[in-house]
């Protein structure tokens, strides 16, 4: 997990427009206003989807991530941009497994942040068993 914290890649990443027009790219970047569902027919060939967070307050990327994971995307899902340490746990739950923050994250702080919650109330895109299931076996 933590090695994915300040993730870099050599794979060229193209925009949604480019990807959807006729590129053979295997990595694509989704801006907050773009519809992640347009990628669903192409998940097989994608190895990396980068979800942009130009401002940490803009939470659309959380939904984009879940939509991709719910549809079965198994490649790398990385959050890029204004990614704050206190958002890591939520991001991970929404399916992100790599981060490319504008300001590099301190691995110790990140490990603490990721370990904030002992359990979770809801089902999300990670493997965590929700509390209601723990209660009822």
């Amino acid at each position: 997990m933590v090695d994915q914290l300040n993730h870099t890649t050599d794979t060229p990443i193209v925009s949604m427009d480019e990807f959807l027009s006729e590129s053979n790219a295997i990595a694509v970047r989704i801006e907050p206003g773009e519809d992640a569902r347009l990628l669903l027919p192409h998940l097989d060939r994608l190895t990396l989807v980068e979800v942009a967070f130009p401002k940490f307050r803009d939470g659309r990327g959380f939904s984009s991530a879940r939509i991709l994971r719910e549809a079965g995307f198994t490649g790398t899902l990385r959050a890029q941009g204004d990614v704050l340490i206190d958002q890591l746990s939520h991001m991970k739950r929404c399916g992100f497994d790599a981060f490319a923050p504008d300001v590099p994250l301190n691995p110790d702080h990140a490990a603490t942040a990721l370990a904030t919650w002992p359990e979770y109330y809801q089902t999300a895109a990670d493997k965590a068993v929700p509390i209601w299931k723990l209660r009822h076996g």
Partner: peptide, 14 residues
């Protein structure tokens, strides 16, 4: 209340 507490997708709503 439980469902909405620390909801990972809906903590940065508009």
């Amino acid at each position: 209340r439980q469902w909405s507490s620390f909801h990972p997708e809906f903590s940065y709503l508009p």
